[in-house]
Amino acid sequence: MKTGEIIRVIVLSLVGAILMFVVQPFLYKQGLIWEPDVQNPEAALESWASDEYMAAATFVFGASVFSTILWCVLTAKSTAHRPDEIKHWILWWWVLGLVPILSIGVAIGLLNQIEEVRLSLALFFVLDILLLFWLTTATSTPGLLMYTPPLAHQMRHFLLKFME
């Protein structure tokens, strides 16, 4: 992997971590997304955000980063160079992409007990895995497999223009 690609993986993972562990809990704690119908909503939100949300977010974050790193390692080691060989890797990208998607189901269904936040949580987590998995792999997949993630070609092209 090139240095630029490694840096992009680290930076995007850090941005994702800030979003998931700082920005999103902050929005919940402020009651901007959902306000519980209890006597002390601030305390309830505080408690939910630091317990259930953090567990769910850590789970989704872990699954996304795991998939991303696994993808980068596998593609860096891959010797595929012919179109038909490269095509197979598109399927593997989707298979690895399923891991964070499934993790959202586990996170909002099992780790979170509050039904009212499920939709908002799902939307947030989808955005998070778009950043942590899709954007990171689309901009940082190494070698000849660089364009296998969807829209990677356009993203790389945009990145190149931006850097020029």
């Binding site: 160079h81 012919r82 179109p83 490269i86 095509k87 000849l144 660089m146 364009y147 070609h153």
Partner: peptide, 24 residues
């Protein structure tokens, strides 16, 4: 061994040059 057959394959299959990034 490689380049000529691959260019022919890409031509025959239509525009799938994304699968041969070295060509783009």
């Amino acid at each position: 061994a490689e380049i000529n057959p691959e260019l022919t394959e890409i031509m025959n299959r239509g525009n799938e040059a994304v699968l041969a990034p070295w060509l783009l």
